[in-house]
Design a protein around this nucleic acid. Structure first.
Length: 402
RNA sequence: GUGGACGUAGUUCAGCUGGUAGAGCACCUGUUUGUGGCACAGGUUGUCGCGGGUUCGAGCCCCGUCGUCCACCCCA
């Protein structure tokens, strides 16, 4: 027996229904905000992710499904969605046009990690990317949208926000941080010491308790933002306050991908194990440029479908459509013809084998059909069908017209 | 990549100190040759993850391997 690869899953029945419900709900909300669908390839040049997600991230340095294709190209399966959308934005020369663009996407992403709860090697994200809008109003709007999607899905969450600054205020802050960290490096864990070199900002969200207690004294970017970033961040918080959206400023919130600046946010749930982030996003004003486009501000987010699968409250399932069956073999083909005709407008479950009344009724329940339609001896003789509405319990026998 | 737990029927699991494999649920049939969800009765299903070893004998012990889950790392 051949099973799916490690960290990859088949989705069916209840699970696939939940999945579809998540995606369709998110699409409905995104459309209300003016987003249109974009589909980009799963396979991209490896360079795309090196330049966008960043070499220093674990995603790129050790988690990519990377290989050489038959044409000798260095390619990899996308580990996240933003890079591809931005690439498409630039490839399509949309950066040369003044129009603002808003795209939503969903689909599989691939990271070669050790699977655990809420973390698969092939997982699915729904995301949105808004291009050309520099206003912090857009940051606020996009956070609101994510909140609405979760609300529509019946999922509770906490919102964490932070500002990552910009090329003006981040570098000097990073210097301050590095010198602070260097002073206390002896007491920091091995990982943090490595991060001081590779990506000092990441030290901030180290989970080691000792590190965290030492970091309480660390300089906070929030206190060292340049005027523009500071104004925007204060605006964002006041907008959230006015909208009645609860949030927590988490100065240690650092997005794992290199391309973020200014607003960073994360939606977390405490109901799903240690992988608590259910959505994440923020502003990435420099990424279009990094990928050879004209400077274009942008904001976006992604929701992890698998992370919220168990949290979603599914709408109650109501009886729907018809179940059709025959109780004498000669009536089977009549049933099939009837069903084909009815299927032009309704959901129909057909039982091909002739069987007893009782087992048909069980079939009706199993199919969760609203109406039972049966042909037995009498009906066959009279060219009629017997119909029962399973909810109202009403029954009738009606003429079957050819 | 590191650490821990676990792989027995479709599923959830039981199986004592090694002695020829069991329960609930599900499924099928019947009670009821035309009124479903309930009840009752009966029935089907296993290379006990895979490979090797110890033993007269292994689901149980040992080694390896694959897989699952959880945690770390990282992230949605």
């Amino acid at each position: 027996m051949i099973n799916p690869l490690r960290g990859m899953k088949d989705l069916m029945f209840e699970d696939s229904q939940r999945f579809v419900h998540i995606i369709t709900t998110a699409i409905t909300v995104a459309k209300r905000y003016g987003y249109s669908y974009i589909e980009t390839p799963i396979l991209e040049e490896t360079a795309l992710f090196r330049r966008s997600v960043g070499d220093s991230s674990d995603i790129v340095s050790k988690e990519m499904y990377q290989f050489e294709d038959k044409g000798g190209n260095d390619v990899c399966m996308r580990p996240e969605g933003t890079a591809g959308v931005v690439r498409a934005f630039v490839s399509g020369k949309l950066d040369r046009q003044p129009a603002k663009q808003k795209f939503y996407y969903y689909g599989p992403m691939f990271r070669y990690e050790r699977p655990q709860k809420g973390r698969l090697r092939e997982f699915h994200q729904f995301g949105c990317e808004s291009f050309g809008e520099a206003s912090v109003y857009e940051d606020f709007t996009i956070i609101t949208m994510v909140g609405q999607i979760f609300k529509a899905l019946g999922i509770g969450f906490e919102l964490k926000i932070n500002s990552l600054g910009c090329p003006e205020c981040m570098p000097p802050y990073k210097q301050n941080l590095v010198s602070f960290l260097t002073d206390i490096s002896e007491d920091l864990c091995a990982d943090c010491n490595r991060r001081i070199e590779t990506n000092p900002i990441r030290v901030l969200d180290c989970k080691n308790e000792q590190c965290q207690s030492l970091l309480a004294q660390s300089p906070k970017l929030i206190d060292e933002l340049c005027e523009a970033c500071d104004t925007d961040f204060k605006k964002l918080t006041s907008l959230l306050d006015d909208a009645g959206i609860a949030y927590e400023v988490d100065t240690n919130l650092v997005r794992g991908l290199d391309y973020y600046n200014k607003t960073a946010f994360e939606f977390v749930s405490n109901e799903i194990g240690s992988q608590s982030a259910i959505a994440g996003g923020g502003r990435y004003d420099k990424l279009v440029e990094y990928l050879d486009g004209k400077p274009t501000p942008a904001v976006g987010f992604a929701i992890g479908a698998e992370r919220i699968m168990e949290l979603v409250q599914m709408p109650g399932r109501e009886r729907e459509g018809y179940y059709m069956g025959a109780m004498v073999p000669e009536a089977v083909e009549k049933i099939i013809m009837l069903a084909n005709r009815k299927r032009t407008s309704d959901k129909v479950t057909v039982e091909y084998s002739s069987k007893g009344f009782k087992s048909h009724m069980k079939g009706v329940d199993k199919a969760h059909a609203r109406y039972a339609v049966l042909i037995g001896e009498d009906e066959l003789a009279n060219n009629t069908v017997w119909i029962k509405d399973m909810e109202s319990k009403e029954e009738k026998t009606v003429a079957y017209t050819v």
